[in-house]
């Protein structure tokens, strides 16, 4: 099937799946669009026996656009600069606490459930977006491919089930909501927070960036300790 070789194939099914998932989400609010859209793409690829490696080449345009989309998060952050200034203490302390919790809890849970050493090292940077996770993983001797996967799955868990969890704990304040989502689930959490409100989205974007920076810095002593 020659049409499977055309990059338009991968782009069409991805954007098509996204549009369908958005529509489904309006009828079935519990079905998060990231789950339904990815499932649709996986099903179409499986039915047509199209290799995932080819698909990933097709959609390089979309993965490249994640760069400018991340830069674009500067706009909501800039618009909320006044509120950010007022909450600077809460932002820095909560993000620092969240970053430490992310590394320590992931490492401890894998350790007590007797996961392999490779998994333990690769899971440590799971709270940050995968480009930062890759670098940290290489630094401590983890497997970068595993770290990318862990960071994506973390994003999905936080982005999909995070809001219900936070609401159950009574965190309706958009500032705390956004900080928690961005620090726990990086870009996925930020995408979800932006749907909640622009304020939540901008604090999530800020927490995502800061968690990336703080986590990278926290790994310098870990790296030295590992020798």
């Amino acid at each position: 099937m020659n049409f499977l070789q055309d990059p338009l194939f991968g782009l069409t099914i991805t954007i098509g799946a996204y549009a369908i998932a958005k529509g489904l989400n309006r009828k079935l609010p519990w079905l998060h669009p990231i789950l339904s859209s990815s499932a649709i793409v996986l099903i179409v690829l499986a039915l047509l026996r199209a290799p995932i490696a080819n698909y990933q080449v097709d959609v390089e345009l979309l993965t490249s656009l994640l760069g400018p989309a991340t830069v674009a998060l500067g706009v909501p952050i800039y618009k909320h600069r006044q509120l950010i200034r007022e909450r600077l203490a809460a932002i820095s302390v909560s993000v620092l606490a969240g970053s430490i919790t992310g590394i320590v809890s992931a490492g401890l849970l894998v350790y007590v459930t007797k996961g392999s050493h490779e998994v333990l090292l690769s899971i440590l940077p799971k709270s940050v977006s995968s480009p930062i996770g890759i670098e940290i993983s290489k630094l401590v001797g983890g497997t970068p491919e595993l770290s990318v996967m862990f960071s994506v799955v973390t994003g999905v868990i936080g982005g999909v089930w995070g809001p219900a969890f936070l609401y159950r704990l009574g965190m309706r304040d958009p500032v705390s909501f956004g900080l928690a989502m961005g620090s726990a689930a990086h870009g996925f959490g930020t995408a979800r927070s932006l749907q909640e409100s622009e304020t939540a989205g901008s604090f999530s974007a800020l927490a995502m960036g800061l968690t990336g920076i703080v986590t990278s810095l926290l790994f310098i002593p870990i790296y030295i300790a590992l020798g």
Partner: peptide
């Protein structure tokens, strides 16, 4: 923003 994450989730 979510659209750009689909390829990562599929991977």
């Amino acid at each position: 923003l979510l659209l750009f994450f689909i390829p990562y989730v599929v991977g």
